[in-house]
Amino acid sequence: MEGLKLANAELMVYIHPSKSGNKLKAICRELSSLLFQYDETFDGVLLAFDVTVKSKGAKILAGLNPYFGVKVEASLLLFNPKPNSLVEGKIVKISPETIHVIVLGFSAAVVTDIDIREEFKYKKRNGEDCFVSSSHKRHVLKVGTMLRLQVESFDEEVMHIAGSLLPANTGCVKWLEKQSEEASHMDRDDHKRRKIA
């Protein structure tokens, strides 16, 4: 999935002196407060981190609360989907006008009817709302389906994605992967035939 990236960073983490007994725990607590929030410094939403304390020493900051700074090296997993990138999520609601998706368990995404390909037609099957492809009857989008969609925009403040199903490489992830496998098998068979001939 696009939009995820690993980054290495050298950070200065500021800790209250009362937490100096266990620096690593205090550092992890400080970094944990940044999880699942967009941070301009990291240019993304922090999803996970792994920290190594770089030096044994610490720099004491003067002031009313004399915090001390500890240099750390951190590996960060960030989420920042750019426009035209592809993300995947689970469909949680379908209506004739929209498809609602949860990406990575925390970010909401919506695809509106103007961003759904013409081939997908809204239907009710067994009392369930779904979109069915008119060109491939097995390509069905319903609640619980893992959906690949193209990012139109990402609102960092509320973690909301506006998505699109207009590109041909979007839709049900299982169906897209099956089509990709079948195409690669056909390519291999064609290649073998050419070698024999």
Rank of each mutant, 00 (worst) to 15 (best):
A58S: 13
K59D: 04
K59G: 05
K59N: 12
K59T: 15
I60A: 11
I60N: 03
I60S: 11
L61A: 11
L61E: 12
L61W: 05
A62Q: 12
A62L: 10
G63P: 10
G63S: 12
G63I: 02
L64S: 14
N65F: 10
N65A: 12
N65E: 08
N65D: 13
P66V: 08
P66R: 14
P66C: 05
F68D: 02
G69Q: 04
V70T: 13
V70L: 07
V70I: 15
V72T: 08
V72W: 11
V72R: 04
E73R: 12
E73Y: 13
E73D: 09
E73S: 14
A74L: 08
A74D: 03
S75K: 14
S75I: 05
L76I: 02
L76T: 03
L76Q: 01
L76F: 06
L76E: 00
L77N: 02
L77D: 01
L78S: 02
L78V: 07
L78I: 06
L78F: 04
L78N: 08
F79M: 04
N80A: 11
N80M: 04
N80Q: 10
N80I: 01
N80E: 06
N80H: 15
P81M: 00
P81D: 01
K82N: 10
P83I: 00
P83V: 04
P83G: 05
N84T: 11
N84M: 06
N84L: 07
N84A: 09
N84C: 03
S85C: 07
L86T: 02
L86C: 01
L86Y: 02
V87W: 02
E88M: 08
E88C: 10
G89T: 08
G89K: 06
G89R: 07
G89V: 06
K90R: 15
K90L: 15
K90E: 06
K90N: 11
I91Q: 06
